[in-house]
């Protein structure tokens, strides 16, 4: 059974369609790269899939739980929004223990997991420093740990490598792959296309609320009729261009 599944999922704000009849089927242990220009509807899609907003029509489920069942969803998902949801007055340790407590995670095992994750992300030395004094990268890492702490079935990551130095970004990429290897489905939204090319099994491109392309990165970058290889960036630019000439070119291609 797919871990993330949507059918005709639609979100309308007044007269405007933010998400237009989205059909997704994402399997267990895969990394789904979710691309789209600014304002394409990516964040709305993530908010729909995490139960933070209700669809106008259509259905969706996470690990078999309907996305309208917020209480049922919570144990199955982890969410790292673009703006890390952290408390400035807490230390990383306090923040992580607090969230673990709210999720009723077993204390001893959680302590070990927190320590391991802090260690892997090179945060141990700063774990007792207030988050107000953290750099953007340190906040991002803390929020990442928070999102995966309870080993959810599905993790939604919105620009997880944003603001990270190359070493930390690589660590996150490796951890995403490890997550997928352990069976977690990763829904990854980012503008950093090389990250998607490196870690995603499947890529979906959203434009004006519609899924305009979907497939594995290799297929997407392969020009069908000529056999030429494009970069994912070329494909992205063609498919999401608002220039009619480019649209024609993309369709022809």
């Amino acid at each position: 059974m797919p871990r993330i599944e949507t059918s005709e999922l639609t979100k309308r704000y007044g007269e405007t369609l933010a998400v237009d009849r989205l059909d997704l089927s994402i399997s267990e242990g895969s990394v789904y790269g979710f691309l789209g220009p600014n304002g394409a509807g990516k964040t709305t899609t993530m908010r729909l899939l995490t139960g933070l907003t209700r669809p106008t029509s259509g259905t969706g489920s996470i690990a078999g739980v309907p996305i309208t069942d917020r209480d049922g969803l919570r144990p199955h998902l982890g969410y790292l929004p673009e703006e890390p949801p952290l408390y400035e007055q807490a230390t990383a340790y306090e923040q992580l223990e607090y969230v673990a407590g709210l999720r009723d995670l077993p204390e001893r095992a959680t302590q070990e997991r927190i320590n391991t994750l802090l260690d892997e992300l090179d945060l141990t030395a700063d774990a007792t420093t207030r988050i107000a004094d953290y750099s953007k990268g340190m906040r991002q890492k803390t929020a990442y740990i928070q999102a995966v702490l309870h080993e959810p079935d599905v993790v939604f990551l919105d620009e997880p490598t944003s603001g990270l130095d190359p070493r930390a970004a690589r660590t996150i990429r490796e951890m995403i792959l490890d997550l997928a290897d352990s069976g977690t489905t990763v829904f990854l939204s980012t503008h950093i296309l090389p990250v998607v090319e490196e870690v995603a099994d499947t890529v979906g491109i959203l434009s004006d609320g519609q899924l305009v392309a979907e497939g594995d990165p290799e297929t997407l970058t392969q020009r069908a009729e000529t056999g030429d290889t494009q970069t994912l960036e070329d494909v992205f630019l063609e498919l999401t261009s608002t220039d009619p000439a480019a649209d024609v070119e993309a369709t022809d291609g």
Partner: peptide, 15 residues
């Protein structure tokens, strides 16, 4: 609440 997305995907709105 602060960190709304975190809290609402961690515990119920009632909580």
């Amino acid at each position: 609440i602060n960190a709304e997305s975190l809290m609402l995907t961690t515990v119920s709105a009632r909580t």
